[in-house]
Simulated assay, not measured.
Amino acid sequence: MATIRFFAAAAEAAAADAAAIDATSVGDLRAQLTGLYGAEFERILGRCSLLVNGTRATDDTVTLSGGDTVDVLPPFAGG
């Protein structure tokens, strides 16, 4: 299972800081997260960047394995 870490608005929408999900790809992960956390989470997820082991995943075909860590990062403002 991959470890999924939620930050800011994504953590708020999921009501959790982390989850363990058995997904085979980023697209599969998106579908499972939407199923678990609902429409509001899906809306926020659409604006988020996903980092797989620290590298931005720009494609839903990126493969995931059991030891991966995926960070769900909403856009941040400020500075």
Rank of each mutant, 00 (worst) to 15 (best):
M1F: 15
M1D: 10
M1C: 08
A2S: 14
I4Y: 12
F6C: 07
F6W: 04
F6R: 06
A8E: 08
A9R: 05
A9C: 03
A10F: 01
A11E: 03
A11Q: 05
A11K: 11
E12P: 01
A13M: 05
A14M: 08
A14F: 03
D17M: 09
A18D: 05
A19F: 01
A20E: 15
D22F: 05
T24C: 11
T24M: 12
D28F: 00
D28G: 09
D28H: 04
D28C: 08
L29G: 02
L29S: 07
A31G: 13
A31C: 07
L33I: 08
T34H: 12
G35Q: 08
Y37E: 00
G38R: 01
A39C: 00
E42F: 03
R43M: 11
L45K: 05
L45G: 13
G46F: 00
R47T: 02
C48N: 03
C48H: 02
L50V: 10
V52G: 01
N53C: 15
G54A: 14
G54N: 15
T55L: 06
R56N: 05
A57K: 10
D59I: 06
D60K: 06
D60G: 06
T61P: 05
V62I: 00
L64D: 01
L64K: 03
S65E: 14
S65Q: 13
G66C: 11
G67H: 08
D68R: 09
V72R: 13
L73M: 10
P74G: 14
A77F: 00
A77T: 04
